[in-house]
């Protein structure tokens, strides 16, 4: 157990350089690339005095090294600056408002993708070489190349416009938002026993999370299939079968062993999940981080844009840490 603890501590410490590099890259992109970010974002129509004032406020008049240190210092203190529009709220508060929507969408999308992946992947593996296997392999390539806004709009067209079954945008019907506890509407409405809100939140979640889930499921289908085939060919499975262990139990053991690489894939897919969420949010007018980022780019609200991207970077680093720890718990071979 102590080696597991060493692993977790070492891995947690490794987050520091990863975060530093990501923050440096973000800083580099936003400040050092040719051009003045404030001028680029605010545009040419603003008088030079105002431009100068904004630049000063963002600390852009100081030497680049000082700017860099201040930037890191402020992030370390949870200070993401103030937004330039709408009451000039602290960016961190704006993010706190929008992030739960993205979290809810990605949790549902992720769950759907993994479920589809495990089911289709296992079917393909157990029917290896058949037509079912071949078509599921094609499915995995097809799903991967689906363009989220297009697929999402087709679903909106069918289930929203023609069949009129589901809403085509937004997170919940007007006036139904449950009292904020976690910010996740499904959980909040359950906690407050607000069933109208629950039904509305779920019906708004179905199309976007299915869109995201199907597009991301292809990679899981493939990895589950390939791993399961490998495991089924291993000696211990033959030993089980030779000893007359029930097929259901054999399958259970095979699945358990085939699942470890799936966890690694979950980590790798996480970046794709977040990127996909940006497009899904735009398609379904979902008020999350992705629409926040795009809206603020449009309003040329520089501190909010930087804050959103920094937040994404921190989130990515945290998730990759969690995935690695889960992986270490599952696979005793992963230790330092």
């Amino acid at each position: 157990m102590s080696s597991l603890r060493t692993y977790i501590i070492t891995r947690a410490l490794l987050v520091i350089p990863t975060v530093l590099i990501l923050l440096t890259v973000v800083f580099f992109i936003l400040r050092i690339l040719p051009g003045d970010p404030i001028a680029a974002m605010v545009g040419q129509k603003v008088p030079p005095e105002v431009l100068e004032k904004l630049r000063k406020e963002a600390g852009l008049d100081k030497p680049i090294v000082v700017q860099y240190i201040e930037y890191l210092y402020n992030i370390a203190h949870g200070d993401f600056g103030r937004s330039l529009i709408w009451g000039r709220r602290p960016v961190i508060e704006e993010i706190a408002d929008r992030f739960p929507a993205t979290l809810e969408l990605t949790i549902f999308g992720f769950t759907i993708s993994v479920l589809i992946g495990i089911i289709t992947g296992s079917i393909a593996a157990f029917r290896r070489g058949t037509k079912v296997d071949a078509s599921l392999r094609l499915y995995s390539v097809f799903a991967y190349t689906l363009f989220i806004p297009w697929f999402g709009m087709l679903l909106q067209m069918i289930f929203g416009v023609y069949l009129g079954l589901l809403p085509i945008g937004g997170r919940i019907d007007a006036g139904l938002a449950p009292e904020r506890i976690t910010g996740l509407y499904v959980i909040d409405s359950l906690l407050t026993l607000n069933f109208n809100a629950l039904v509305s939140a779920l019906s708004h979640l179905i199309l976007p999370s299915i869109t995201l889930g199907i597009v991301l499921s292809g990679a899981y289908t493939r990895i589950v299939r390939n791993n399961l085939i490998d495991v089924l060919n291993q000696d211990f499975i033959m030993a089980y079968r030779a000893r007359g262990v029930r097929e259901r139990k054999v399958i259970f053991h095979a699945m358990k062993n085939a699942f470890i690489p799936v966890v690694t894939l979950m980590g790798l897919q996480f970046a794709i999940l977040l990127a996909g969420a940006v497009l899904t949010e735009t398609t379904f007018s979902w008020p999350g981080m992705g629409t926040f980022l795009l809206e603020r780019i449009q309003y040329r609200d520089y501190p909010s844009v930087q804050g959103a991207i920094v937040f994404y970077a921190l989130f990515v680093a945290l998730i990759s840490l969690i995935v690695d720890v889960i992986y270490a718990l599952l696979d005793p071979r992963v230790r330092y």
Binding site: T18, I21, L22, V25, V26, I29, L30, A271, I272, L274, A275, G276, V278, L279, G290, L293, L294, I297, V305, I309, Y312, A313, V316, A317, S320
Partner: peptide
């Protein structure tokens, strides 16, 4: 680190 960052969001930035 770059690889771990969502590609579309990096491109947007």
């Amino acid at each position: 680190s770059l690889y771990a960052f969502p590609s579309l969001i990096l491109a947007i930035a």
